[in-house]
Structure formats: C-alpha cells, structure tokens
Design a protein around this nucleic acid. Structure first.
Length: 664
RNA sequence: GGGCCCGUAGCUCAGCAUGGAUAGAGUGCCUGCCUUCUAAGCAGGUGGUCGUGGGAUCGAAGCCCACCGGGCCCGCCA
C-alpha cells in the first residue's frame, strides 16, 4: 500500500520537474520497482521517453532531471535521493524508515483488510465456475477451473465487488444420458463400492462408452433417453435427476474439500423447463439477430440461424426439426445472468456449506424464495479455452442485444494434461511429445480426490515426524490443509494460456515453489510470535507486573497475557536494518499485486507474489534473529515486522484459498 | 482450408501488455549449513544460439513479417 504512495510521490516530483524545468506536460512514463536492489528502490524511464522529444541522450536527460529533482526534493517526505544511471534511468532512494513506519502502521490499522482497495465500488459480479457434468467425479482438469474461479471470487470480494458464485449443473445432457443408459439398460448396480461420483465416472461412464463401440444399438438407447429427459416429468427425467443429484452431492464434497463455495446451483433441466429459451428466442427474433434460413439450396435450410461469428460465420440455434442446439441452451442462461430476461426462478436452500453459508438452488416451485440472484453488472464465465469460439458467439449476441462490451466475460484457460512420465502410468506411449491429454470417456485422468488423498498421506507422514506428540485429528486436519494448498497453488501459479503438464511425482515433491512452502513460512513466523508471547508472560510472572526491563517489551498493556497475541508497535521501526527492509518492501507492495490481479483476472500474479513474500520471509528468518537479539527495542521492532508479515501473508493466502497454519 | 494458443536452462515455468541496466525462479545434479526463533529451510556451484530467418529501432526474449515444431477449435453432436 505504501509503495504506491512512494510511486505517487516520485511521479509528483518528476511532474514538477517536467513542467517547471522543461515546460512540458502529459508525458507518459513509468515509475516502478527495479528488479535489482542496486538500482535503488524505484526507477523511472522518463529520460528515455523524453529523449526523442528533446533530441538528447537519455543519460544526459537523466542527469538534468536528477539535479533538478534534488533541488526540490525536501518537499517529498518519502524520497531521499534521486540519482541518474549512465544507461539513462532515473533511480530513487526512499526514506526506508519512513516507509517501514507507515507500512507497519497501515497493516496495524487495516488488519484483515490490509491490501484491499475499493476497486469494485460494490458492483454486482456473477461468476460461474466448476460446472462439471454430474455424471463423474472431478479430475485435476476440473480442479483448475474451480481453483481459478474460486480465487477470482475471493479477490473480487476483497476489492469490494458484490460477487455471486454460480455452479451450472448440466443434468440433462449427453453425458448424463450415458450413465442412465448404464443403469437402465445395462443393469449396472446403482451402488458401487466407492464414492458415487467416482463409481459413475470411473466405471459406468467409461464402460458404457466402451460398449457403444461394440453395440451400436446402444446409441439408439441413448438417443431415446436424451429425448425422454427433455420432458421434465417423465420417469426417465426423474431418474436422471435422482442419479445426478447423488453425483452432485459427492462432487460438492470435493469442491468444499478444495475450499470452494457457491451461492447458487443452476440446473439445466430447470432452465429448459422454465421456458426461458422461448422468451430469449422471441427477443432474438424481434431484434433480427436470428433468422430463419429460407433458401432451399442452403445447407441450413429450415434452421434458425444466427450470424455472429467472425467473417459472418453462421451458427444454427434451432434445427429444422425444431429442436434447440447446444449453444441455444447457453444463450438464455447468459441473458438471464445479465438480467436481460426476467428471473423465472424461485430459490430453495440446497444445503448449508462447511463455511456456514447457504447454497441455494434454482427451483420451479412457487413457494421458493425470491432472491436477487441474476441481473449482474458483469458476468464472468470460467470455461476452458476450447469453448472460446462458442463463448465469443454468445458475447457477440449479447452485444448485439445492446449490452455494453465487457459485461459478459469469458475467462478462458488452457487445460491440464499429463506429463510424459505420468502418462506412462496409464500405459500411454507418447513418443517424444511432452504431454498427453486426459480423456474422460477412456478413463484417462487423475481424480481430484485421489490426488488429494495422495498429497494428504505424504503430508501426514511429514507432519507426524515433526509433531510426534500431536493428536490424530490435528495431524489429519493439518495434512489436509497442506494437500489443498499444494493442489491450489499448482493450479494457480501458471499462466492461463499455458497447458499445465501435471506430473504426479512432481506434485508430491514437498520442496520448492509450492503451497506448502508458503504455509511453512507462515508457520515459522507464527512460532516466533508464539514463543515471544510466552516469554513475555513468563517474564511478567517472574518479575512482577509493571516492572521495567521485561525481556521482550512489546505491546505493553494491550494484548499481552495468557494466550494473548503480540501487536504491531511502530515506535522502534527506525532500528530496522537493510535485511529487514527487503521484507518491509514486499509487504508494502501487496495491494499493487491485488490490483494487478483484478485488472487482468489472472490469479497467477498474486500466487507468485505470495510465493515471493514467503521466500523473502524465509531469507529474513535465516539472516535476522528476532528472539535472540539483545536490544529489547530492536526485538520489539522485529516482532512487529513479523506480525505485519503474518497479517499480509494471511490475507494473501486467504485470497488464494490456502489455509494459514500456525504450526505444521 | 480458416481461426486461436504455445515454443526461454536436462525438466516444469516467470519475464513479453507499456522495448532499455549483467535474461530469472523452482526442480534435477554437485558442495556446504541443524548445541540459537521448525532444515517442508538457507547459502554456493552447475546449467541459456530466449524455435529459425528477416525487418523497423540508438537499442529486441519482448514489436512487425515469414517460416519451422507442438496443441486446440471450426457438426442441423453435447
């Protein structure tokens, strides 16, 4: 938060020089942190930007600017020096004591809100993620979707967006029909020995698809099932809802396990039954966006067609037999999200989630609650990049209906694939390729629960060694948090447009850049404060209340006592040295990272920041003694810094959905 | 055939939006460091024609063009 203030000051200083010394204004230039410490605390590329205009070399301009700056620098509290670099950069040195003081003060006053800014102004955002077909368990590809969506939800909520999270349940699609065929026509038992979603996905779905290969008549069965499911009140439709809701309930357990939560489930069967499509269609017809193709020689003769792609690409919405296509189901849903269509739904409580919030579900019953779910300022749909074309068409249709650009936003991301060595475990030989795609129908994927279990087991062993006296419940809770952190971080750290090549061995390696590294840094900090407070308590008991010379004199009179915490005290921050300042600066740029992430909707930025913050703390931890320092005031200052780190880290981890553990 | 994306160290990836300072991490491999706040850590070493070629620029990993290699999308399937 305070790096931002320093940047603002540096800009103000440079602007003053630009206008007074050169008589110029509105020059575009950057002020940012350099990648290396030797180049100062901030740098600007102003001299490069001015060099064409002034027809002088960047380094000459840098020198001029710096000497002009130096004359008026006294006004600017945070900036201590401005010096030119021969390459042409203008480098700033900050008053680090001032930076440390105001940073710690800000962390102290904001606490859990540290790093938050009012970016959203209360804007209503609807975000849809997860949306896994309810015929199988989540695999690691779905996990990427969920983790991205849930993290963006957390970050938007933190920056004052009014966010509603949707999970779309396609309970009337082809994949559900596949398992219905299995249960109704192939006599698969309706209870497997494993978790029901795993059973349906790993066994029923895969085997039914195998059988299609040998028995083409089964495809006819599937068509019948699909048709029957369209009638909301048919026996098949009822049965399908029964099965899908059992699968869904198991899927939700996995989602919650991953620290995700939702506000509302939207069932496709209900969207269809609500006649939302008819109303959407009449709007589309009235606005002339869709047209009946009446040219007998056209390939789309008799179809209702939309022209919405690039280069006038056409897309069929209603077939010549009057049935709607796949994309036609998405259009009314998207219109509903933005409030273009009036809400036909009532809402019922589906269940209470582990975080205590209510999960609602759409309902067609008249006695449900009328909530205000739809009608958002912005609707974000998290779906992988393969859906980009369809999503672009939907976006185009919405903009033709007059919705402002950017209100409907597809967040595309690349898929998760298997590394060559992991692929080999599935007996896939991929030659010299670097990865192999997962295939649901062929059973080639890694289930989320299975991977979490393996991570859990691995973490459990390690935690047990480190905490031999701890009880089982605590050990498992801790191992679970570590497993989830590992999973979430591995999905977040990579850029959205890169395929994640998932390697089981790599994922199980508990070293290096990972979720547990982040948790470890926090746990180390936490132990310092824990010991500090027990020292304070002991010292007080031994020496009596109010006596001077208490070994660790922090937070006198406030929050010190049995089990009490250490609070941030900024009276001694001037004692902090160079090694501590690296950590101060890292803490001070948290909000810049948050803002960056909101703008790009790419959580990678924040994930990597969180890792770098952990790394910087670990360096601090090795280099700088806190409790073993002799100078009581310096101990106080360092403890305050550790505490500030913990607030920042905890806020950042919470945005990533990673549990902050006091001990591990 | 058309469209989108990727290509940086043995491997997995940052950096590219907005060109500028000796191209960075993790992992792997090799060395050190637990009688001091948790060694899931830290320090050091190893490792790079930034896919190739051209162009504009004082200056390119980044911008433009072409090509090569890989992936995805393009149905009256869902």
């Amino acid at each position: 938060m305070t790096i931002r203030r320093a940047i603002d000051e540096a800009r103000a200083l440079l602007d003053e020089v630009i206008s007074h010394h050169y008589g110029l204004k509105d020059i575009a230039y950057d002020v940012a942190e350099p990648k290396e410490e030797q180049y100062g605390d901030l740098y600007s590329n102003l001299a490069f930007q001015l060099s064409k205009l002034l027809r002088k070399s960047p380094s000459a301009i840098a020198e001029e600017v710096c000497s002009a700056c130096t004359k008026i620098i006294a006004k600017y509290r945070m900036i201590r020096e401005v010096e030119p670099h021969s390459a042409g950069y203008i480098n700033f040195r900050l008053d680090m004591h001032e930076l440390a003081r105001i940073t710690l003060e800000e962390v102290k006053s904001k606490g859990k809100a540290y790093g938050s800014r009012d970016i959203g102004k209360g804007k209503r955002v609807l975000i849809e993620h997860t949306s896994v077909n309810p015929n199988k368990a989540l695999h690691i590809g779905h996990v990427r979707n969920l983790v991205l969506g849930d993290t963006i939800y957390r970050i938007l909520r933190f920056t004052n967006h009014n966010v509603v999270v949707l999970n779309y349940v396609d309970d009337s699609g082809l994949q559900v029909a596949d398992i219905v065929v299995g249960f109704k026509f192939l006599n698969f038992p309706q209870n497997g020995s494993k978790k029901f979603d795993h059973y349906c996905g790993d066994d029923v779905y895969v085997k039914v698809n195998e059988m299609y290969e040998h028995d083409r008549s089964l495809l006819e069965r599937r068509r019948e099932v699909l048709k029957a499911m369209e009638d909301y009140n048919s026996d098949i439709a009822r049965f399908a809802r029964e099965v899908t809701s059992r699968v869904l309930d198991e899927q939700l357990k996995t989602c919650w396990r991953l620290n995700a939560r939702y506000d509302c489930l939207n069932f496709e069967s209900q969207i269809i039954a609500s006649r939302l499509w008819d109303r959407a269609l009449s709007i589309l017809r009235a606005s002339g966006i869709v047209k009946m193709d009446d040219n007998p020689s056209s390939k789309y003769y008799g179809c209702l067609v939309v022209k919405a792609g690039v280069e006038g690409e056409e897309k069929v919405l209603v077939r010549s037999d009057g049935t709607a296509t796949y994309i036609a189901k998405d259009i009314p849903y998207a219109m509903w999200k933005l409030g273009i269509l009036e809400d036909p739904f009532k809402y019922v409580k589906y269940t209470e989630q582990p975080d205590g919030t209510v999960l609602w579900a759409t309902s067609l019953d008249h006695d449900g609650s009328s909530l205000h779910i739809n009608g958002a300022d912005i609707a974000i749909t998290v779906i992988d990049v393969r859906q980009s074309r369809l999503q672009r068409i939907i976006t185009k249709i919405l903009s033709m209906l007059g919705s402002d650009d950017g209100r409907y936003r597809h967040l595309p991301y690349e898929v998760v694939a298997l590394s060559s060595s992991t692929a080999r475990l599935f007996n896939i030989e991929i030659g010299d390729r670097r990865f192999a795609h997962m295939k649901g129908r062929e059973g080639i994927y890694i289930n989320a629960d299975d991977m979490l279990d393996r991570l859990h087991t691995k973490a459990y062993e390690e935690v047990k060694v480190r905490n031999p006296e701890a009880d089982e419940q605590w050990l498992h809770r801790t191992a679970e948090s570590i497993a989830v952190a590992a999973m979430r971080y591995s999905m977040l750290k990579q850029d959205l447009d890169k395929i994640i090549t998932f390697d089981i061995e790599d994922a199980l390696n508990l070293q290096g850049e990972s979720g547990q590294y982040i948790q470890y840094a926090y746990a180390r900090a936490s132990r310092i404060l824990e010991k500090a407070s027990s020292i304070v308590v002991r010292a007080r008991k031994e020496e009596g209340e109010g006596k001077e010379g208490v070994r660790v004199g922090v937070g006198e009179g406030e929050g010190v006592g049995e089990g009490a915490d250490i609070d941030i005290d900024t009276s001694s921050t001037h004692l902090l040295g160079k090694d501590e300042m690296v950590l101060v600066k890292a803490i001070a740029r948290f909000d810049l990272m948050v803002e960056d992430t909101v703008k790009s909707l790419n959580p990678k930025t924040l994930a990597r920041y969180c890792y770098s913050l952990a790394m910087i703390f670990n360096e601090f931890y090795e280099k700088v003694p806190v409790l073993h320092e002799q100078d009581t005031n310096l101990v106080k200052a360092r403890l305050s810094l550790v505490k500030a780190f913990m607030y920042t880290m905890s806020n950042c981890m919470s945005l990533l959905g990673i549990d902050a553990l006091e001990r591990m």
